[in-house]
């Protein structure tokens, strides 16, 4: 049976014809769209290396069947930077040395982007660690990762704060 899936991936509408419904979102991204940033670590939702945003929410791409996400908006690590300008979370991971080998990093960064958008951790390292526990780092760069998430959260809050002030003054 042939199935058509339309996804907006990193802002671009892609329609993919699948000859098999078994294709996960992760395999579709990596094998059909050549977006290999999301990694296939465990392929069972345990390591978080495949984390992407679906309609703005971080999920494990390895556990979602692509056909079931027809019509969704997907953001991968490839869609974060603005040309040569890194996303604040990417910049913070470099500044805070939040990696060693780098394999888990795309998943860590996408998870951090989701975490900051959820707004549940604030600057509390304990909450950051808890809410990042779905991302395993075999090199154990957790100290830097935690610092990077807090640093990026601060940077993103500063970036949005001026416009909020403007809105308040207009209100």
């Amino acid at each position: 049976m042939s199935l058509s899936v339309s996804l907006t991936v990193n802002g671009r509408l892609r329609t993919i014809i699948l000859d098999d419904p078994r294709v996960t979102l992760l395999d579709l991204l990596r094998e059909r769209l050549a977006l290999t940033g999301a990694k296939k670590g465990c392929d069972r939702g345990q390591c978080g290396a495949c984390t992407v945003l679906v309609d703005g929410r971080r999920v494990n791409a390895c556990l979602a069947l692509a056909v079931s996400l027809d019509g969704s908006e997907i953001t991968t690590i490839e869609g974060l930077a603005d040309g040569d300008d890194l996303h604040p979370v990417q910049a913070a991971f470099i500044a805070c040395d939040g990696m060693q080998c780098g394999y888990c990093t795309p998943g860590q960064i996408m998870s951090a982007v989701g975490l900051i958008a959820e707004g549940r951790a604030g600057n509390d390292p304990e909450r950051v660690r808890e809410l990042m526990s779905g991302n395993i780092c075999r090199c154990a760069a957790y100290q830097g990762i935690t610092e990077a998430v807090i640093e990026a959260g601060r940077a993103l809050a500063e970036r949005t704060a001026p416009s909020e002030r403007t809105e308040r003054s207009l209100a």
Binding site: G48, V54, R57, V59, L63, S111, G114, L115, E118, G134
Partner: peptide
């Protein structure tokens, strides 16, 4: 339970 990614889905 689970992880943030799994709870979101």
């Amino acid at each position: 339970g689970a992880s943030a990614q799994l709870r979101n889905a």
